[in-house]
C-alpha cells in the first residue's frame, strides 16, 4: 500500500456507506424482527440506478431520489407477498431476490452493461483542481453527512410511539394486533424505509467507486451487513454504526496481514476464519452485541436525544 493514509480514508468511507446499510438492517431486524437476507439486492439496485442515471448525465441528487424511490417500491412489492406467508418465506424470498436481480443485470447487457458493469460514474461533488486526497475528504464528508441524517431519522422514529409499535411487533405480534396495530402494514412500511435507505447507500457507493459491476454484489455483502448488526448490537443504532466500523476494520486489517506475514495459507481463507472467530467470540460473550439495547423511556425532543447520545458516546470513549 503506497499511502497508508489513503488506505485509512478509504476504509473510513466504506465504513460510512456500510454504516447506512447496517442502520437500515437494524431498523428492520433489530427493531421489528424482520429478517431481511436480501440487503445486497437493494444496495445493488440503488447503485445501478445511480450509475445508469449518471451515465445519462443526471446529477447525484436526482439519482439518489430516484434510487430511494425505486428501491422503496421494490421493497414494498417484494415484501407484500412474502410478508403474508410465514417468516421463513421472507428470508428465502429476499435471498432469491438478490440473486435474481444479479442475474438480470449480468444478462441484460443493454440495460446495465452486463458482466462488464458501468464505469465512469461521476462523483456527487465535482470541484475542479483538487488533489486526490482532498476529493476523498469531500467524499467522506458527504457520506458521513448522509449517515448522520439516516441515524437521526431512525433514532427519531424508534423513539416515538411508532417505534414502540415496531418493538411490540418484534416482541409479540399478537399483542400488537390485539391492541389495534395493523402488523402487516407496519412491516411493509419498515421494509420500504429499510430498502430505500439501502438504495441510497448503493447510490453513494456507486458515485464513490465510480464503477459498478455484478461481482460487487455477492451474497457475502448481505452477510457482512448482518455481522455488523449482530456484533454492534441489534436495536441500538450507535451499535449498528460501531459494527460497521468493526467489520470493515477487521476485514481490512486481515487483508493487510498478508503483506506482512508469510503464512502457509491463502489470506482470503484466513480472513473468513478470523471473521468467524470474531463473530463467535462476540455472540458467546456478549449475545446482545457490543452496545446493548437501551430499555428505558425515550426522551421527547430532538435536542434531548442528541444530548443523551453525546453523553453516551462520551462515557463510551472514556471507558475504552
Amino acid at each position: 500500500m503506497a499511502d497508508p493514509l489513503m488506505y485509512l480514508l478509504d476504509a473510513v468511507a466504506y465504513a460510512g456507506i456500510f454504516g447506512i446499510l447496517s442502520i437500515s438492517l437494524n431498523f428492520e431486524y433489530g427493531y421489528t424482527n424482520l429478517a431481511n437476507f436480501g440487503k445486497v439486492a437493494f444496495f445493488m439496485i440503488g447503485a445501478y440506478v445511480t450509475a445508469i442515471m449518471s451515465s445519462l448525465k443526471y446529477p447525484f441528487i436526482v439519482n439518489s431520489i430516484l434510487a430511494i424511490l425505486i428501491t422503496g417500491v421494490i421493497g414494498v412489492l417484494t415484501s407484500l407477498p412474502a410478508l403474508r406467508l410465514k417468516e421463513d418465506f421472507l428470508a428465502i424470498t429476499m435471498i432469491t431476490l438478490g440473486e435474481v436481480m444479479k442475474l438480470i443485470i449480468k444478462n441484460e447487457e443493454w440495460l446495465a452493461g452486463g458482466v462488464w458493469g458501468i464505469s465512469g460514474i461521476a462523483p456527487a461533488i465535482v470541484i475542479p483542481g483538487l488533489t486526490f486526497r482532498e476529493r476523498l475528504i469531500i467524499q467522506i464528508a458527504l457520506i458521513y453527512g448522509i449517515l448522520i441524517a439516516c441515524y437521526f431519522i431512525c433514532e427519531l422514529i424508534v423513539k416515538s410511539p411508532y417505534g414502540r409499535v415496531l418493538k411490540t411487533i418484534r416482541e409479540d405480534e399478537l399483542i400488537a394486533s390485539t391492541y389495534g396495530k395493523n402488523v402487516f402494514k407496519y412491516k411493509v412500511q419498515v421494509f420500504a424505509v429499510g430498502s430505500a435507505m439501502s438504495g441510497l447507500a448503493g447510490g453513494l457507493f456507486a458515485q464513490y467507486i465510480g464503477t459498478v459491476n455484478p461481482y460487487m454484489f455477492e451474497p457475502t455483502v448481505t452477510f457482512a451487513i448482518w455481522m455488523m448488526v449482530i456484533l454492534g448490537g441489534p436495536a441500538n443504532n450507535l451499535g449498528a454504526i460501531l459494527g460497521a466500523f468493526m467489520v470493515e476494520g477487521f476485514q481490512r486489517s486481515s487483508r493487510l496481514l498478508k503483506d506482512y506475514l508469510n503464512l502457509p495459507l491463502d489470506p482470503v481463507n484466513l480472513q473468513v476464519m478470523l471473521t468467524a472467530i470474531l463473530v463467535i467470540t462476540v455472540v458467546f460473550y456478549r449475545p446482545q452485541g457490543l452496545l446493548k439495547e437501551k430499555i428505558k423511556p425515550y426522551e421527547g425532543s430532538l435536542h434531548k436525544i442528541i444530548a443523551s447520545k453525546f453523553m453516551e458516546v462520551k462515557s463510551w470513549i472514556r471507558r475504552s
Binding site: 410511539p161 414502540r164 409499535v165 418493538k167 411490540t168 418484534r170 416482541e171 409479540d172 399478537l174 399483542i175 400488537a176 391492541y179 389495534g180 396495530k181 436495536a235 439495547e293 430499555i295 428505558k296 423511556p297
Partner: peptide
C-alpha cells in the same frame, strides 16, 4: 403476554390509540 424487552410503562402505553 409481556413485551420483555420494553419498559413496564411501554407495555401499558402500547394499548392506546
Amino acid at each position: 403476554r409481556i413485551l420483555q424487552r420494553m419498559t413496564v410503562l411501554d407495555n401499558l402505553l402500547i394499548s392506546v390509540k
